[in-house]
Design a binder for these strands. Structure first.
Lengths: 339, 339
DNA sequence: CTCCGTTGTTAAACCGGTTTAACTATTGAA
DNA sequence: TTCAATAGTTAAACCGGTTTAACAACGGAG
């Protein structure tokens, strides 16, 4: 005989009050005397009762959940250090409130829009995180239509009704370029992420601008896809060019590591013949040979902050855009003066 | 004026029937004529109505969600290829049903038990995945108490009331050891994961057993923590021993990659002076120098299968344990005959 | 002593679905 | 023609909470 979970009615009966009184007490609302309040709380404790989220959800028209839709092919997701850290940050904040995180991993394409639509229509979540922003991102329009609150990670390139929580990639990339310039490099290439992503395009822009500020001509750039395979291929392409670049700034660690290996396979040694820098500062970066000079981000903190803003937004508070401390360069062994 | 979402009552009114009829139609239940059925469906389509999950949840006493609690420090999670692939597999199945995945990332410790308890008491999920099984795992007892259905990834070492979906690590590890033996190695060491995890202990056991079957004495083993830092440290420890091992079988890729680098830092070259094998076959493995010989798993398929079983279990169907095709060895360049 | 304003509490409506007992209409058999 | 069985449909109860209008009890002012 499975003992059924107690309901608010059981607690009310036990405390000798009405359901309403229990609800008011539980939510710290005024109108219940200290005396009854205590009686109710102890009755609840004795029954080990906790309000059922389903009932609350229905009455409050809230899901008490936030959504994160990740549209990436599994193989790419697997090696990306961003989301795990970001999610951990999200959870750190949610754990204190009564919210949970609903995750959807979909293949890029139509499934993505459907995922958002389902989350909204079914009332499964009260708000979503918008990551991996794209050029003229159609999701902004979609979410506005279905009326689902959101926060964007970084600022969209079109008008947006949602608050943005920003962590600027630029300074880290710029620092990497300056560092290479100071070492004496003049032919500094870039392997970028897909340009339809704002972060892909943004890192490329920061690289180009830093070169310009150093008075150097724009170096060669190859657009890639953040994967190891893509990083290796892009590297081979760059190193086949004439004149050969003496340094490559990669848009993420995974491509940098694969690129480093590809360079070696072509008979070049890092950092003597080629300097490389990454982006992310994944744990492995410090354990490569040579250890990778890279740009550290704070995905965990980003997750925390974005969650706080989204919850505030949902609860109807006034929210403003947030600017987090920018990325910074971590110097290791993969950069050296050109030979 | 925000246009409110239509409810089942709106659809009923529009189709000129009762709420009950709409519900029956929607769930493909008998008792409604083909004629009315069509009228109802088109009314629903015109209003762009979809049942609200909150109402359904309450009435059906179901959350229409599955839970995954991951108890790992963020830094470790970030580099692990397992969960992203596993989750992608889960989502591939959930997408077809009307379920979602609720994710909780917690620090190991008390928070973990609380997470499961909250998921159960609040009625947030209908079942959970039990991963990273530990020796005499206390979560089995906990879940049985709160009455939350579950599937375990692999078989616990104690009596379990839950179905197990298994993917055996052993054959892959054994194949790695046999491969090294065939190359002529006789001093084959192991860097294991934490022994409190069944997979940590299981891979160590498979390694030991394969050595025994080859007629070799048990080699040195260092217990580590699946991190790059841990892998590097364990490698230094092993290589400082006398006689020095000529091959190391690592319990995951991350430790293997860091170990490979550590060996080189000690003046040894891979694979000439030291052969290494990993476990996971993360994307990067193929892009190392030398590319890493490793054991491929199928986390995606595991996620799919585990989800199917868990959903069946929740829906009251008879379920049996499942055995997936075991792991297999992927030969690359990090293994060679001892010099 | 009456009237009024508080304070504490309850009963009932409500959120948006599902389920079921009861009712109506139709059909087939006797 | 009557009756039983069956198919189609509905009204109402229910799931477990929240919210609110109404009401009772009480103290203080006039």
């Amino acid at each position: 005989m499975p003992k059924k979970k107690p309901t608010i009615a059981d607690v009310a009966r036990r405390a000798g009050v009405s359901k309403g009184a229990v609800s008011l007490t539980l939510n710290n609302r005024p109108g219940i005397s200290q005396d009854t309040r205590e009686r109710i709380l102890s009755a609840a404790a004795e029954l080990n009762w906790q309000p059922d989220r389903r009932g609350r959800s229905l009455a409050a028209s809230r899901a008490f959940a936030l959504g994160l839709v990740i549209a990436r092919p599994p193989r790419l997701l697997e090696a990306d250090p961003f989301f795990p850290a970001f999610i951990a940050g999200v959870e750190a904040v949610l754990a204190e409130r009564e919210y949970t995180l609903v995750l959807q991993v979909v293949r890029p394409g139509q499934a993505e829009a459907d995922a958002y639509r389902n989350l909204a229509r079914g009332g499964r979540v009260d708000g979503v995180f918008l990551s991996d922003l794209r050029h003229a991102d159609p999701r902004l329009q979609l979410l506005a239509e279905v009326g689902l609150p959101a926060v964007t990670l970084n600022r969209p390139d079109v008008r947006s009704p949602f608050p943005a929580v920003c962590l600027d990639d630029g300074p880290g990339i710029a620092a990497a370029v300056r560092h290479l310039v100071e070492l004496g490099h003049t032919r500094i290439a870039h392997v970028s992420g897909p340009s339809r992503f704002l972060h892909g395009a943004g890192r490329a822009r920061a690289w180009r601008q830093a070169l310009a500020e150093a008075g150097l001509p724009p170096g060669p750039v190859v657009e890639s896809d953040f994967s190891a395979a893509g990083g290796a291929a892009a590297t081979r392409e760059l190193l086949a060019g004439h004149p050969r670049p003496t340094a490559i700034v990669y848009a993420n660690d995974l491509m940098a590591i694969a690129g480093q290996t590809a360079a070696r396979a072509m008979g070049l040694s890092v950092p003597e013949d080629l300097s490389v820098t990454g982006f992310d500062d994944c744990e492995l970066a410090a354990y490569m040979h040579p250890p990778l000079t890279t740009v550290a981000t704070n995905a965990f903190g980003w997750g925390k902050r974005a969650t706080a803003v989204l919850l505030d937004l949902i609860e109807g508070e006034e929210v403003a855009d947030v600017e987090l401390p920018p990325t910074r360069l971590v110097l290791r062994g993969s950069t050296a003066p050109p030979s």
